[in-house]
Design a binder for these strands. Structure first.
Lengths: 216, 216
DNA sequence: TGACTATGACTGTCCGGTCAGTCAATTGCC
DNA sequence: GGCAATTGACTGACCGGACAGTCATAGTCA
């Protein structure tokens, strides 16, 4: 948590700091991110950052949590809870892709809590990151199973796990340097992503989910 | 590449160094791994390491490539190329799980080339890491499509991508601190992995692959 | 003896965190 | 309104620890 001072400064300064911090942590990783460099990028003094946060670690945790909320807002914000699971999932894939193409830094932050030397952080954050989506997916599957939209012989937990796994692979392939190269190698595409490569990817992945869930 | 000296020293020393390096890089990540600490763990002097390798970076790349070969040998070594794709995939899942439970460090090394600040490395290594499996899977799918074991309307590249994606999620869930927590949250299991949790995971995942590939 | 390997103290650099002092804005007093 | 006092945000030089890489010397073996 930031110190109170952080909430008293001008909003645009606060925003700038959070934005630059997210980008820097995403570019260089927690350990390699330099507080002095962040200060200069955000246009504040290094000392100021320590007026706002207890430590680099505090700053990092706050930036991650803030990014998580922004991602959730962007993806779930305009979703009607009454939509059936298939429409919701497609919405999540499309909004997720759109949001993360504009703000890849937030996905990279997410990916990074699972990298080496981050055990300390993953123990603190993994649960709170995953719980929201896990609960949402399980609830949705159960609800639509009762409505007859989902096969009644699927294992709810495993199905939720699979849906989310496919989403992670999908979204990570759009952003991470390694997974982009991997996707290009598998799909034999060169250069950057266009809608023409994104669309079949969404289609193919949601088809797999439909196969898993839809009654025969 | 190591200097020649590295291949002239006693084999057990060479092995010990590679083993400890893999573990240390996996535990702490490239940047946080300390060469002096590696030296003391491996029972050699820090200077010696610089007699064997040009730099920490050289050492790291060699350790990764060496780990990749060991993993491949463990997984593909005793596989009969004449087996059908379903048997091969099951073999890969089981051998992969077995090997990586004994040597989680190699999977963590793999996972790490996709983390922040590792772009430099992923540009060098991602292709050579992924190409082997990608080619193998595509070849296999094409072959068994001709043999009538795989639906002839699947997109070979996308199917190979999906099979490998499911494998990555599966194997990563057994090892990475974050993905272990995530798996436990989804499947609502506590404590460590037993065969009782591993088996349905393999079963569920290979079922999805069968759904994707098997003729109706 | 000579060719090669082993060693660990040393060096220069980098970076998280500190702190003594500055300055602008706000408050309180006449 | 004008002035002084107070507050608290801002600053960057500085400190100490960590760590990659070096090198002069010691050890080893043929």
């Amino acid at each position: 948590m930031p110190k109170e001072t952080f909430f008293k400064i001008a909003e645009d300064k606060r925003e700038r700091l959070l934005r630059e911090a997210a980008c820097l942590f995403a570019e260089r990783g927690y350990n390699q991110a330099d507080v002095a460099q962040l200060a200069s990028r955000a246009g504040v003094a290094k000392g100021s950052i320590y007026n706002y946060f207890e430590s680099k670690e505090d700053l990092y945790l706050y930036v991650c949590r803030d990014g998580m909320q922004r991602s959730r807002e962007a993806i779930y914000g305009d979703m009607d809870p009454e939509w059936d699971i298939y429409r919701q999932i497609e919405h999540i894939f499309r909004q997720g892709a759109r949001f993360i193409q504009g703000h890849p830094e937030y996905l990279i932050l997410y990916a990074n809590i699972s990298s080496a030397g981050m055990k300390r952080f993953s123990e603190q954050m993994s649960l709170e990151v995953e719980k929201y989506t896990a609960d949402h997916l399980k609830r949705l599957i159960r609800r639509d199973m009762q409505r007859g939209l989902v096969r009644d012989d699927v294992d709810v937990n495993f199905a939720a796990f699979m849906v989310n796994s496919l989403y992670i692979i999908f979204i990570t392939s759009l952003v991470s340097s390694h997974f982009k190269i991997r996707l290009q190698e598998y799909l034999e595409i060169d250069g950057d992503f266009t809608d023409a490569t994104l669309e079949p990817l969404i289609q193919g992945t949601t088809d797999m989910i439909n196969n898993l869930l839809k009654p025969v």
